[in-house]
Design a protein around this nucleic acid. Structure first.
Lengths: 141, 141
DNA sequence: CTTGATATTTAGCATTGCTAACTAGTACGC
DNA sequence: GCGTACTAGTTAGCAATGCTAAATATCAAG
């Protein structure tokens, strides 16, 4: 079972299942939905963004991003200001409070996975370490 | 970076991203939503189910499963009959048409992944082959 | 045969995505 | 300059889909 097709058949359900469980971890006890969390992650990783850029990156339509950002703004996790060069544009910035909430949440999810990884054999961890690069190439290709 | 925490931090985003792309693949040109597809997968893997069992397995409330199954029944992908022993109960069965659609869809998604896997180096494929078992243990643990 | 429990469905609400239409700001040709 | 066309974002309203509460149908026990 080293053919690409065979590997795909075996890998897909396992990746999907792990992702589903990781996703379930993030909802508890946080008044942010997955979209809001995801938009904040873009701001953390790529810095301030225009509404349109955010919508494009998150693959939602502009009106949907308006709603998502409104929720974040109401909670004080992002701030908005109009672009001084072009007043049609609207720049969205992650606030310190937003950054803290996001990092805390990310840490919590990573912990859940880390605990499970810690229970594996050392050889299994070595496989995972190598898999990081492979997954990266798989996602980019 | 061999610690469980470090591995978790590196792996989580890559697994989530791959899963997101795999999920996006499945919607095109099929009149079934992810819930319906997932319910059919349960029927394929575990055989006929009661409405309640199906709802529990899919972690949705019974009324939601009613709606999901109605859609599948209207398309002829599942059949329902009341349990001969207990007429309150309702058994749901995958039809042949349903099985074919499900398998065709699964094949299509696997193909997308297989094409990407085929572009990797042989050494990378070997890592993936080993990762299958590791992921399995990670999901079970 | 009546009372209470169980499986499922129906009714109606909240959330969230979308498209279409609107508002505000910019840019270009005359 | 000024009107026309374009662009960024928002508002309005629809469709899909999750939920809870209440209704329906069936079973089980005294």
């Amino acid at each position: 079972m080293r053919s690409a097709a065979g590997l795909a058949q075996a890998l897909r359900p396992r990746v999907m299942r792990l992702a589903r469980r990781l996703r379930q971890m993030q909802d508890d006890s946080l008044d942010l939905n997955p979209n809001q969390l995801s938009a904040m992650a873009v701001l953390l990783n790529s810095g301030d963004q225009l509404m349109g850029e955010l919508a494009a990156q998150e693959k939602v339509q502009p009106p949907s991003m308006t709603r998502i950002v409104h929720g974040l703004e109401a909670r004080g996790y992002v701030a908005r200001r109009s672009d001084p060069q072009d007043h049609r544009r609207c720049l969205v910035t992650l606030t310190d409070a937003g950054r803290q909430v996001l990092l805390a949440n990310r840490r919590r999810r990573d912990e859940w996975l880390a605990i499970r990884i810690a229970k594996l054999e050392p050889a299994d961890r070595e496989v995972l370490r190598q898999a990081i690069g492979v997954l990266e190439r798989l996602n980019q290709g």
